[in-house]
């Protein structure tokens, strides 16, 4: 019985994040518009966009291959699985041991690999520019993220995300320099990986500085819907990751009763709302940077992550 409930909760979490993902995108968009004194679209606009895209024909470039048509499903699957492995409202779910934090980072890498290939597939210059810049950004963001993983797992003694979250929740962690550095590195990586300002601009087209939007320029219809949904899921993944590691309060553990789960979900939603608000605030307050400044931004993230890990190699109490 406990096993079946566990599976149900795991499945419920998978569906929850799928349903929540467009909402968080809508939330950030609305907040950004209001911070700029515009009215902004409705919170539900991303759902409407998805529904419309799903119903439209796919217009496929003449030079597109089978890879171009398979890639959206692969990207969506990889990101959904990765996002489902991040604890949201409860830790210790039945399949939480399937992949640890390193594997989650690598799953995001799988999605990025196929997205960049899809960008190159039609043989257009915009796809190429997006793919090449995305891989340059990833070549610094991924090591920075792994350094952050090192810091966490040295502290918690495990790379299992669920166990890390429980460690952060129960043990007397306190304020640590290494954790602060890891937080900073993770935030910087999250901004870059989600194509947010100042690294990339999610709202532009037809601009030479764009990265993510240039890669997906040739996609349309249901393929575009999947890619947009995957992008929303990725944003949700990073917000969940930040909240389950650095603000784990309110999270319950698997096997508790229904009230505990409901409290967990309420706390999770509050954390997401706050995260989205901070993201919108940050994005409104800063200007986009030139693409060849991004390496300095992410190089700093890598160095911060490495510094955090090194501090822990020096002393476990830092």
């Amino acid at each position: 019985m406990a096993l079946i409930t566990g599976y149900l909760v795991q499945g419920g979490q998978m569906l929850l994040i799928l349903l929540l993902a467009p909402l968080i995108t809508g939330w950030v968009r609305t907040l950004k518009a209001q911070l700029l004194c515009r009215r902004g679209p409705s919170l539900l606009q991303p759902y409407r966009d998805l529904r419309k895209l799903l119903r439209k024909d796919v217009v496929l470039a003449g030079s597109a291959s089978w890879l171009f048509r398979v890639a959206p499903y692969l990207i969506f699957a990889a990101i959904w699985v990765a996002a489902a492995l991040v604890p949201t409202f409860a830790s210790g779910l039945p399949f939480s041991w399937t992949a640890d934090l390193i594997a989650i980072v690598a799953l995001l890498g799988t999605a990025r690999f196929f997205l960049a290939l899809a960008g190159l597939d039609t043989g257009t210059s915009f796809g190429g520019i997006g793919a090449s810049r995305e891989m340059m950004i990833a070549s610094l963001a991924e090591p920075a993220m792994l350094m952050m993983v090192f810091t966490l797992s040295l502290l918690a003694g495990t790379t299992e995300l669920s166990a890390v979250a429980q460690f952060m929740l129960t043990a007397d962690v306190g304020l640590r320099v290494s954790l602060a550095l890891a937080l900073l590195a993770l935030v910087m990586v999250a901004i870059a990986e989600n194509a947010r300002i100042p690294v990339d601009n999610p709202a532009t087209h037809l601009e030479l500085t764009m990265v993510h939007e240039a890669m997906v320029l040739e996609y349309s219809g249901r393929h575009l819907a999947l890619i947009e949904l995957a992008a929303s899921l990725k944003l949700l993944l990073y917000l969940s990751l930040l909240s389950c590691i650095f603000v784990p309060w309110g999270m319950t553990t698997a096997g508790e009763d229904l009230t505990a789960y409901l409290t967990g979900i309420a706390a999770y939603l509050a954390k997401l709302g706050l995260g989205g608000f901070l993201l919108a605030l940050f994005e409104t307050g800063i200007a986009k940077m030139r693409v060849f400044r991004v390496d300095q931004f992410l190089g700093a993230a890598l160095m911060l992550g490495l510094l955090g890990a090194l501090l822990l190699f020096v002393s476990r109490s830092l």
Binding site: L54, V58, A61, H205, R222
Partner: peptide
Amino acid sequence: SIHRFASNSVRRSPAWDC
């Protein structure tokens, strides 16, 4: 689920490329 409940059609055309 997409092919069952949403669109299933494909049209070929030249690449958009802005």
